[in-house]
Amino acid sequence: MSTLEIRDLHVSVADKAILTGVNLTVRSGQTHAIMGPNGSGKSTLAYAIAGHPKYTVTGGEVLLDGEDLLSMSVDERARAGLFLAMQYPVEVPGVSVSNFLRSAVTAVRGEAPKLREFTKELKTGMDNLSIDAAFAQRNLNEGFSGGEKKRHEILQLELLKPKIAVLDETDSGLDVDALRVVSEGINRFRGSGDTGVLLITHYTRILRYVKPDFVHVFAGGRIVEEGGPELADRLEAEGYERYAKALA
């Protein structure tokens, strides 16, 4: 069992306060959806937890199974069991997908996987996500379509098996088929029951495929309302206007 605890988190970007006191606890077996309008700070939460250098934590704590994530480097956080699926995965020229994945798996598991077993594992993972085999030889994210990038993020999620996964707008830019494939991947990952998911999204669409246990509405850099899956249905019907008004 794992627990990610976010306590009164304050984060700034270039001296501008973006997160203004976020409290959230994610446990294994739970899926939390964070929903909110653009600019509400959802992605900032994701990147701050992962340790992106652009984001400065000005207050609060983030603990993974009691360990202080904020004192760790980006790679230490990943090895501790945190995963961030990125909204815009960056293209890295000259680094092949297979080389990258093997390096990542080696780092996270603490030992190099046997080549034969890894090749098999990779093939299964790629088949599950309907990723073409030739993909492994391509350069990381280079020339990938939006859907390919997101499938590749979920492939990494399934290979690295983190304790807690933060999925930042994984549904954005996907057509219905790709959304279904990606959602199936997330559900396979959730299926083990000993992982927690923090799903960040603007739209309710993905929640039809990946059912959340809790829904949190983000506005003005913090959580302003919480509830069960029914809250997502209400947002679908009413939109975010109510929260924008309340903040203004």
Binding site: S73, A78, L160
Partner: peptide, 12 residues
């Protein structure tokens, strides 16, 4: 680039 690789556990 470095962030992306580090976020997958690869040391700096």
């Amino acid at each position: 680039h470095i962030f992306y690789l580090q976020a997958r556990g690869i040391p700096y």
